[in-house]
Design a protein around this nucleic acid. Structure first.
Length: 400
DNA sequence: TTGGCTTTTCCTGCTT
DNA sequence: GAAGCAGGAAAAGCCA
């Protein structure tokens, strides 16, 4: 049997017991909600405030999922927008906040036209900082009261979420428990992009994002959400259809359409699927494959963090991303990939590219040599060094 | 509209 | 033989 590229990646990844946030598994091993939860923590911890990177995908079972499951499960839209129920309010994106408001507007038959949408445009952190009075002022006495109590309940529910360390341990155990060759019988491969599920509402986690934002290289094109961008994205967003490639993409997926939803004062309105061209050189299409018949369309993610910044951020927050990378020489900026495919998958998840591999990531890394963002470390595999044009990693810069 | 930038994808050849 | 590295080439989205 010929082993596909995707299978090779998975075999390698599992074979080396790596952690990955986007994992391709044969059907017989993928049905682990714990795994989904675990894998998402890496991204959630790295970019807790970002809109769920893979809101498509399989809903993870969560201890806090207690109500409104019908609402959550009955249709695709709410399968996606119901994310707020599973995520600590501190980490809600602006859209999560809107979803949450929307839910209660619907439930209480509140006249949404009375809402000032501008004032609803806040993320979870801002929302959680509002006092009861402030919420009354923003949402009005009737809806404000309802939302205030809902928020308090949700905050309380997520207090005891498991920590990353626990999830990491859980993942390790999960991987160790896997049979050596879990793919023997599975001719069909599915790519599972698991949701971002922040695990904690501890202040440390929350402050991390703020700290993270302040560490961004001033002049660099970080692509982090500006307020206006956030506003735009929170009002008009693209939700990932669970059946779309974003949620189940792989090299062999005939796909790449997204279903978009826009927010009206009353509801999210489904728009016609938008077909996009895939970024980069189109993958070579295998004759006879479905792809050969139906070209891939792009799943373009808005420009985000640069790769080197992404790598740097993993390195400067080792406590959030145990085992992915490590410093070889902290002062000189020499670092090593410990779980190369896992990092690549994490990067891919961030860029909404389920087919990212270490091979591709490393190619992008090598382009940094010319620009002196990275320097070569000869003779050492998986080892790179930050160059003079990189920033934000030095101890002095971090005030350490 | 265009060109530069930054990836992304694929590839071949080489090294470990 | 597998994994990783190096770098050319082409493609494509974003942005000024």
């Amino acid at each position: 049997m010929q082993v596909s590229r995707a299978q090779r990646i998975i075999l390698h990844t599992l074979g080396t017991r790596t952690t990955q946030t986007c994992i391709t598994l044969s059907r017989n091993v993928m049905a682990s909600s714990e795994l989904s939860h675990i894998l998402n923590n890496a991204n959630a911890n790295l970019y807790p405030n970002e809109q769920s990177l893979s809101t498509a995908s399989f809903p993870t079972m969560h201890r806090s999922t207690t109500f409104n499951d019908t609402h959550y499960c009955n249709n695709n839209i709410h399968n996606t927008v119901g994310m707020w129920q599973q995520v600590n309010p501190q980490f809600w994106s602006r859209r999560n906040v809107l979803d949450w408001i929307d839910f209660y507007v619907e439930e209480s038959k509140y006249d949404a036209t009375l809402l000032n949408m501008d004032r609803c445009n806040m993320d979870g952190s801002v929302l959680c900082s509002l006092s009861r009075d402030a919420m009354m002022a923003v949402f009005g006495p009737q809806l404000g009261e309802t939302l205030y109590h809902s928020l308090e309940n949700l905050k309380h529910k997520h207090v005891d979420d498991i920590t990353l360390n626990e999830t990491y341990e859980l993942l390790s155990n999960f991987l160790l428990d896997l049979p050596q060759s879990p793919f023997n019988d599975g001719p069909t491969l599915d790519t599972v992009i698991v949701q971002s599920v922040p695990t904690s509402n501890k202040d440390s986690d929350f402050s991390y994002y703020n700290e993270y934002k302040t560490q961004l290289t001033p002049g660099s094109d970080n692509g982090y959400e500006s307020y206006s961008e956030s506003l735009q994205s929170s009002i008009t967003g693209s939700f990932l259809n669970p059946s779309s490639p974003e949620s189940a993409g792989s090299d062999s997926d005939p796909e790449n359409t997204e279903t978009h939803y826009t927010y009206s004062p009353k509801r999210f309105i489904k728009q016609e699927p938008v077909e996009k061209k895939r970024r980069g050189r189109p993958p070579k299409l295998a004759r006879g494959s479905e792809l050969f018949i139906e070209n891939k369309k792009n799943k373009h993610a808005p420009r985000g963090t640069h790769l080197w910044e992404f790598i740097r951020d993993i390195l400067i927050h080792p406590e959030k991303n145990q085992g992915l990378m490590k410093w070889e020489d902290r002062r000189d900026g020499v670092f090593k990939f410990l779980k190369s495919e896992a990092v690549a998958q994490l990067w891919g998840q961030k860029k909404k590219n389920s087919s990212m591999t270490y091979e591709k990531l490393s190619r992008a890394m090598r382009y940094y040599y010319k620009r002196e963002i990275l320097e070569r470390v000869d003779g050492r595999r998986l080892v790179y060094k930050f160059g003079k044009n990189s920033s934000g990693w030095k101890l002095e810069e971090l005030g350490m």
